[in-house]
Design a protein around this nucleic acid. Structure first.
Length: 497
RNA sequence: GGCGGCGUAGCCAAGUGGUAAGGCGGGGGUCUGCAAAACCCUUAUUCGGCGGUUCGAAUCCGCCCGUCGCCUCCA
């Protein structure tokens, strides 16, 4: 496979640019993670699924990937919530982080190499703040330390606004001790009895922003390849990250390409806790299979807002069903013996190979073009449609050559699907049929279903349609659907989730 | 008020200079004992509006409208 250039939209420059992928070292990626103070919702799942897909794609492309996602466990929100629940800040963070990790595991996210915690990097943070003070980029007031925005001429580059413009519309009252209203805290004294750490400026806590700079530089070095996060983090978080990091290193750029994903929205705007319109990842995963959730999250380009609704989830469910159905058809053909002396077997096989090639080409072209997962999904399903069309033609015959070509197309479907995470990882009947379905363990249930199919088949051969339909209808009520195909009766679970 | 994103069929969504992918839904057919699934045909003379550049614009430029986000320690 000959790779073309990868292009990505860089928030810093505001345009799509070519990204040279390093050949002698891993692609280094930092993605803003969560603040573990409440349940994981869909908005947290989007970046995780998106970046997991990017990493898997880059690996498929032949690049190693090293990806880091932080855990902001020292933070006002964590503190506030811990007070409400009457537990320690650390304990609360651990609990919600565990929940987040479980969701990531359910969603098949396997590409994140490090999850650094802020509370484990206080030393690095203090070192960085000290250096910034020495360099004249930061100043101490009482027991707080602020970054001096006026010493960094590129301030505002990412968000496209000057410090004064930012201040003009500010809705918060400004700390009078700051030299410039846009200055931000690097280190601050604790309120009440918050956990705090000793520092040259007294007991205190890191400000927001500084932890990401310190941890990104520690794990990835200065000038790494991609930095991801939500559009809501562009200002102030990422703007400040750039300022303090580039000031600290006296170098530029801190990040080669900034990628910001759009917000998940509910019926009334951005999904957030304060609006109460969020859907937790757990809720969704109890209703839909992870592959379906991934399909939904990848069905629009990462940069656009994505509206959640029950209806749209049903669409993703159907799309996933379509993929499964195609794979099952392929499996059945690959399990059967090829016919001999099939006319035109060569050209038929060529046709199938062409489907696989075209799908792969279009898939890669979509991913290379600013990680366009919506287009990649379209390429995948285009392949599904063509395969279905091919094996459904009236004069379709399974020659040995065609069989081999179909095996190839199935491999390609699997490769593309696995990158996106929509490949049915777990069996469709076996794992779906929990005890609630028919009150039996799955293996016993399978055997039972097989028996029923055989009985029904005998009934059909004797044209006892009433009995045959009773079995089919009865199983349908248990969410087990029977489909009669020329290759025999196929079993499908219609249970969602 | 400032900055940025977005606006494509009933719905979701690709398409960033060469004449509108795909999916869902709808309509018609094929297959089937009947179904289901699948397949085939069909469903936007036009891309929020108005101007401009160009042989040619959904694509580039300007203005306007709508919408979302940020300017609050939010993914």
């Amino acid at each position: 496979m000959k790779w073309l250039v990868l292009r990505a939209f860089n928030t810093l420059t505001g345009r799509k640019e070519e990204v040279d992928l390093p050949k002698d070292r891993p692609v280094r990626i930092y993605v803003c993670g969560i603040t573990p103070y409440s349940s994981t919702h869909l908005g947290h799942a989007r970046p995780a699924v998106f970046w997991d897909t990017v990493a898997k794609y880059l690996e498929y492309r032949g690049n190693e990937v090293y990806m880091v996602q932080n855990v902001t466990d020292v933070n006002e929100k964590v503190w506030t919530r811990s007070q409400l629940e009457g537990v320690g800040e650390k304990e609360l963070a651990r609990r919600y982080n565990r929940e987040y990790e479980d969701v990531l595991e359910d969603l098949g996210i396997t590409t994140i190499d490090e999850y650094p915690w802020v509370s484990d990097h206080i030393d690095e943070i203090i070192d960085m703040v000290e250096a910034l003070i020495e360099q004249g980029h930061a100043y101490q007031v009482d027991e707080d330390v602020f970054f001096d925005v006026s010493t960094f001429e590129r301030y505002g580059q990412l968000s496209g606004q000057s410090p004064d413009e930012l201040v003009a519309g500010a809705r918060v009252e400004v700390d009078e001790r700051k030299k410039h209203p846009a200055d931000f805290a690097l280190w601050k004294s604790p309120t009440e009895n918050q956990p705090s750490w000793p520092s040259p400026w007294g007991q205190g806590r890191p400000g927001w922003h500084i932890e990401c700079s310190a941890m990104a530089i520690k794990f990835l070095g200065f000038g790494f390849d991609f930095h991801g996060g939500g559009t809501d983090l562009i200002f102030p978080h990422h703007e400040n990250e750039i300022a303090q990091s580039e000031a600290y290193a006296d170098d530029s750029p801190f990040v080669r390409c900034w990628i910001h994903h759009g917000m998940i929205t509910g019926e009334d705007g951005k999904m957030s806790k304060s609006l109460g319109n969020f859907v937790t990842a757990d809720e969704l995963l109890s209703e839909y299979r992870p592959e379906v959730v991934r399909h939904f999250l990848l069905s629009a380009h990462y940069s656009t807002p994505l509206k959640y609704s029950e209806e749209i989830m049903k669409k993703s469910q159907r799309a996933f069903d379509r993929l499964i159905s195609c794979v099952q058809s392929l499996d059945q053909l690959l399990d059967s013996n090829p016919e001999e002396d099939v006319p035109l077997a060569d050209s038929e096989a060529e046709e199938v190979y062409a489907v696989a090639d075209e799908m792969k080409r279009e898939f890669c072209s979509a991913m290379d073009d600013d990680f366009n997962t919506a287009r990649a999904l379209a390429a995948l399903f285009g392949g599904v449609r063509k395969v279905n069309g091919f094996i459904n033609t009236p004069d379709f015959a399974l020659s040995a050559d065609v069989k081999q070509a179909l095996a190839d197309v199935k491999d390609q479907l699997e490769i593309c699907s696995r990158i996106l995470g929509v490949w049915p990882e777990k069996g469709i009947l076996q794992d779906d049929a929990g005890p609630d379905t028919v009150g039996l363990e799955s293996e016993a249930q399978q055997e039972l279903v097989q028996l029923l199919i055989e009985v029904r088949q005998e009934a059909r051969e004797k044209k006892l349609w009433g009995i045959a339909d009773k079995i089919r209808d009865g199983l349908a009520e248990l969410n087990i659907r029977l489909e009669d195909t020329p290759q025999g009766t196929r079993v499908r679970s219609t249970r969602e989730g």
